[in-house]
């Protein structure tokens, strides 16, 4: 008895220390820190510093202004592209071929992924072929495509479609394979069969991975677009860069590259918005 009481007295559960409560801090309703929060300023420090140094070196003539035009010169070139309307028409041409190729590739990828993921015959028929296609880097076939399809729009669109078909395929495939079998079983029991089952249950269930697949497809489509536009083209961002290249206008070349970069960022932001908005049930 004596021993027991001692234990009780000195056991940590009984000590004052153990009873100290940790405060749970309210998160203030999840407000994001402002743009000018210290950590955001810190993050911007290095890039801004690089730009400033680059500008100083270029303007003072320490590095060649011709080869390394200052950031301000590049900005000026970009502005010129905007006011002359070159940017607008180039962007329209590039986006058109990018979007057409993307839609074709993604549609084929999702359709094939659904077929292969859901049916045994589709799996046997398609999956190995897709794995083979994946093994071939799309950039490697560019010269072949030029021989086969010429140098107009056709090889460019085919190249873009080919590049983005696989990400759409593989994500759809695994998405439809991982649909909750219990949900499918009961949906069948309640009378959903065949194409109605696919449209009403399977594809919505697989939507998150499908959207991820589309996002990947878009980034590879952009890569394919850039490569495709290195071929002889009459219009597009690539043409701006190629023309500037032969005129040694490096400021315009950098401006073109910045446009490509901006496209990539916009695609990513856009897809994230779509992913959030298209699934209100989450």
């Amino acid at each position: 008895m004596e021993v027991l009481r001692k234990q009780l007295e000195y056991s940590p559960v009984n000590s004052k220390e153990a009873l100290q409560l940790r405060p749970v801090v309210a998160d203030g309703g999840g407000q994001a820190p402002g743009w000018l929060a210290p950590r955001n300023l810190l993050r911007a420090l290095a890039p801004v510093l690089v730009l400033v140094i680059w500008n100083v070196l270029s303007v003072s003539g320490i590095i060649s202004q011709r080869l390394f035009p200052s950031p301000l010169t590049v900005l000026q070139a970009l502005w010129d592209l905007v006011v002359t309307g070159q940017l607008k028409s180039a962007l329209a041409a590039s986006l058109a071929r990018g979007v057409i190729g993307l839609v074709i590739g993604v549609t084929l990828g999702i359709a094939a992924g659904t077929l292969a993921g859901l049916t045994r015959i589709g799996d046997q028929l398609l999956d190995s072929s897709f794995q083979i296609v994946r093994a071939i880097p799309f950039i490697a076939v560019v010269p072949l495509f030029v021989l086969w399809f010429g140098i107009d729009e056709k090889p460019k669109i085919i190249l873009i479609a080919l590049a983005c078909i696989f990400p759409a395929y593989v994500n759809t495939y695994s998405g439809v394979r991982h649909v909750d079998p219990k949900l499918v079983e009961s949906a069948r029991l309640f009378g959903l069969r065949g194409i109605r089952l696919v449209i009403q249950i399977v594809l919505p269930s697989a939507l998150p991975p499908i959207l991820v697949g589309i996002r990947y497809s878009m980034s590879t489509a952009l890569l394919a677009l850039i490569v495709a536009e290195q071929l002889n083209s009459q219009n597009g961002i690539g043409t701006i860069i190629l023309t500037a290249n032969s005129a040694l206008r490096i400021d315009i070349m950098i401006a073109g590259i910045l446009i490509y970069a901006a496209l990539g960022v916009l695609i990513d932001i856009g897809m994230r918005v779509v992913e959030r908005r298209s699934m209100p049930w989450k």
Partner: peptide
């Protein structure tokens, strides 16, 4: 079933009508 087995991407009333034509 033991679990409700509702389709999360359909609103409640649409789940009630699941599969009906």
């Amino acid at each position: 079933f033991q679990e409700p087995r509702l389709a999360p991407f359909h609103r409640v009333w649409r789940n009630v009508l699941m599969g009906l034509k």
